[in-house]
């Protein structure tokens, strides 16, 4: 698979842990890759419990600077914006491989809907609750869905009860935080990296993977879309 453009949307608890190993891999596997980091939020001291950063400031910019100084082979750029309907088509274009590391279903739906308009794209989305979570893999090839969009069978994404962070005030964004476990973030990031390797090296093996930290259980699923 062509890895000319990789995008990470959301540079928080999952995105900061995912970005480093992805750069390590790409630096050797595909050093011509352009990596775009997208996040409109800022690192704050309270984020240090779960997120990796060396200075305060915009998450995409701080992380792009940190990664750029370690992976000079790659072209790494920051987009200090929340993903919206107005910029998704600019940031995510044909042939992109997109990691969705956002913390709200409204943005997942936005990304999934946008990717459904592209002919060729891979979207790998991860999310966690306190001690469990999942990863979804949405692949389109030649204008056809190879796997189902994130919204399929997932009403919580198809009809999100939350809002895009671009629509929230700083106070509202701060109030949306719920307790999270750094190990759940690690596990999502690891599962997303694994899904990336599988889909780029071996094709579609599963399109959703669940995990539970307490039981240690993990289950990959390849669901076929129901024929009407």
């Amino acid at each position: 698979m062509d890895l000319t453009h990789v995008v990470i949307v959301g540079i928080g608890g999952v995105g900061t842990h995912l970005s480093w190993p992805i750069c390590q891999y790409l630096a050797y596997k595909s050093p011509k890759t352009r990596l775009t980091l997208i996040d409109g939020d800022n690192f704050e001291p309270r984020n240090a419990e779960r997120q990796v950063f060396t200075e305060l400031g915009n998450k995409a910019e701080v992380t792009a600077t940190r990664l750029g100084s370690n992976f000079s082979e790659l072209t790494i750029e920051a987009k200090p914006h929340f993903l919206t309907e107005d910029n998704a088509f600019v940031f995510i274009r044909e042939g992109a491989l997109v990691f969705c590391c956002v913390d709200n279903h409204a943005s997942r739906k936005l990304l999934s809907d946008h990717c459904s308009t592209l002919r060729d794209v891979v979207l790998i989305s991860g999310g966690n609750d306190y001690d469990d979570g999942n990863v979804q893999v949405y692949v389109r090839c030649n204008g056809e869905d190879v796997t189902s969009p994130l919204t399929y069978l997932h009403d919580e994404i198809a009809r999100p009860q939350d809002r895009n962070p671009a629509e929230l005030s700083c106070e509202e964004r701060a109030a949306t935080g719920t307790p999270q476990l750094v190990f759940a973030n690690f596990t999502v990031a690891s599962a997303m990296a694994n899904a990336f390797w599988v889909v780029t090296e071996h094709g579609v093996v599963y399109n959703e993977l669940y995990f539970d930290l307490k039981s240690g259980a993990q289950r990959p699923v390849l669901r076929k879309k129901e024929q009407k």
């Binding site: 959301g10 928080g12 608890g13 999952v14 995105g15 590391c101 956002v102 913390d103 709200n104 279903h105 997942r108 989305s125 991860g126 999310g127 966690n128 609750d129 469990d132 979570g133 999942n134 979804q136 994130l150 069978l153 997932h154 009403d155 919580e156 994404i157 939350d162 719920t178 999270q180 759940a184 973030n185 999502v188 669940y210 699923v221």
Partner: peptide, 11 residues
């Protein structure tokens, strides 16, 4: 039988 578990919301 599969009951679809909702996706994790946070990240």
């Amino acid at each position: 039988i599969e009951v679809i578990k909702p996706s994790g919301e946070k990240a």
